[in-house]
Design a protein around this nucleic acid. Structure first.
Lengths: 352, 352
DNA sequence: CAACTAATTGTGTGCGCACACAATTAGTTT
DNA sequence: AAACTAATTGTGTGCGCACACAATTAGTTG
């Protein structure tokens, strides 16, 4: 079909009987080109299937991309530390293109903190933004401004249907809950009591945690006795008491925790109260979770892969800005099942 | 610390008080450079942390990479069709660099066919080779020639310790077996009989399947009654008889199949003989396997991800040839646990 | 010391594109 | 028709590197 040899702008120019400057103008829709000429050039472009050489394009331009990252403070929650850890490899991957990543952290417990950080992001005039929109309303404000300034942005971890991001990166939470149910039901124990724990900080987020719960309930059906507990903003003393009571219900056979940090909190209490026989399924490869997985207190973890979410988000943004690549509106990660036996292969793998 | 601005060869040359040509010679170890000068330049290179601009480097060179792929005929086994399906996305990914991939297929059942294909690969004078070394001895012959011709190669799927490839891409088979054991033991059924099936074509390969079995046995320990069956080169009539007898043992609670194709063969027989109560763990997302996973005949699949192995292999080779990147000698993939509930998220994900 | 060779070092060009700027042409006004 | 402006098109340069080739210097020989 087409020649193996790559077609250059120069070739297009010759074929269309114009200069490279005109072809350039047509390709980038800049400057003025006579309508007749434009059509001719576009025809040639079309028929030859011209693809610009990205190397040459980027080499010449020399502009440093500035991407802002807006996530909760990694010090507050290891989950976000994992997310942040994706920055470094991304910088290395894209260092050739002069990529700059400016991380902005906000307080997981303060929506005002989010708003403040969002302002800082905006005033830094980034070329693109990747954001974990934990706080709904404040996020919408940010998106409005980004839309106005024509700054592309990628959402990750939490989706916001009203937003029009370049893409969303995350998981199907409902299906995630189903996987949780599947894992809990593996052991056909007599005990049909299942406790669902939502231990989180922001009420905004609880919508998403409920999606997991719905998936879990839909999978387990009526054969199980599912009770859910919303334990946000509870101090550890209270938590201990409440959970202790729950764990000692005679019929309780399994527990599902919808958050990564919550997973090891429950695991700690299970161990403390000698309830390690209760099946436990939670989220993510936090150090404490790995510890309890190893010990057998946690039976399975579902990996959300925050590190890779960050990397993919940055990659999408960079590909868009640098190469004008078409990207999927939604990038749903696989629901990775992590057990004691396969956890090592995940931790050692560079792929993940 | 270091200036944000990228250091160019020209800068190095100025600092060292030489010309760019000399710096070029030092970087590429070509031509003659006075020992004294070389040291000076290398010092500057070191202290500035010079990183070549890959865009510029690749832009200038203009050579089309030719990579040969040597795998079993995709028509013979869907596993290898999956492996081959990684070629297309790879070509797209690297199209900018003028990458050519020449697939060479051999007969899974004929070591001589491998040798013939290997010859073809060699005579095509590729820049790099990615090979599934199914046949041990024949592979060693190939490697010897590749080593002699200084052609880099990547092994995937099957490792060969004697070889010195750029890197090996695959999984930890022993640990894979452990995961299999873990998955089979989830259901604390009374029945402690476990059947291990090796259904394969090449005897060479059986060493690797045994590694899985060892992992399985080490995990399950003595509490289980494990019996293993080596069913290579058996026709389907015989197979039916043999397996039927095994499946009807009264104590049999679980089965582990070490190959992807074998997995659906056993699943088919299980269904035929109404033995779907027996737990079944096998390998890979073949269409038939997905069918039986959906039906509940297969309980879990361990995903080896042949498609991605191909992609990563090509990526490694390309990165090496084009960018002289340092690569890990071994790239072990995560041992992905696939269940009825999370299989969709894997099939839909672009990441995998 | 001229004439040569070998060793070492420097210079110039192209890769394909983006973008600034120069040149040309058409159209208008006085 | 000269003098202008607006519209359109063409030309030249740099991005950083690789590589071919030219130039210089040192070393040797008759």
């Amino acid at each position: 079909m087409s020649d193996n040899k790559n077609i250059r702008i120069k070739d297009i120019a010759e074929m269309a009987g114009v200069s490279v400057g005109t072809v350039d103008r047509v390709i980038h829709k800049r400057g003025k080109v006579a309508e007749e000429v434009r059509k001719k050039v576009e025809n040639v472009l079309q028929s030859t299937g011209y693809k610009p050489n990205l190397l040459a394009r980027t080499l010449g331009s020399k502009k440093a991309l500035k991407i802002a990252l807006l996530i909760p403070d990694p010090k507050q929650d290891e989950y976000w530390a994992l997310a942040e850890s994706g920055v470094k490899p991304s910088l290395e991957e894209w260092s050739q293109y002069g990529l700059e990543i400016a991380p902005n952290f906000f307080d997981l417990y303060e929506s005002t903190s989010f708003a403040t950080s969002a302002k800082e992001v905006l005033s830094s005039k980034p070329d693109g933004v990747i954001v974990a929109p934990i706080f709904h309303n404040e996020s919408l404000n940010l998106f409005a401004e980004l839309d106005r300034d024509q700054i592309p942005y990628v959402l990750f971890n939490t989706n916001i249907p009203e937003a029009q991001p370049l893409s969303f990166i995350g998981q199907d939470l409902y299906q995630s809950g189903k996987v949780g149910g599947e894992l809990l039901s593996l052991d056909n124990t007599e005990k049909k009591g299942v406790a669902v724990f939502h231990i989180h900080e922001s009420i905004d987020n609880s919508v998403h945690l409920k999606a997991k719960e719905t998936g879990l309930r839909d999978f387990l059906g009526t054969a199980y006795d599912i009770e859910s507990y919303d334990l946000n903003h509870v101090n550890s003393g209270e938590l201990n008491q409440i959970v202790s009571k729950i764990l000692h219900q005679s019929d309780l056979g399994a527990a599902f925790v919808s958050t990564s940090q919550g997973t090891n909190i429950i695991a700690t209490l299970m161990e403390k109260h000698n309830c390690t026989h209760i099946k436990l399924v939670g989220y993510d490869l936090l150090a404490a979770n790995l510890h309890y997985l190893e010990k057998g207190v946690i039976n399975f973890l579902i990996n959300q892969n925050p590190k890779r979410m960050t990397q993919v988000g940055i990659s999408h943004l960079t590909n868009h800005l640098l190469f004008h690549k078409e990207l999927p509106r939604e990038e749903l990660f696989p629901l990775e099942i992590i057990s004691k036996q396969n956890v090592g292969s995940y931790l050692n793998s560079r792929i993940h």
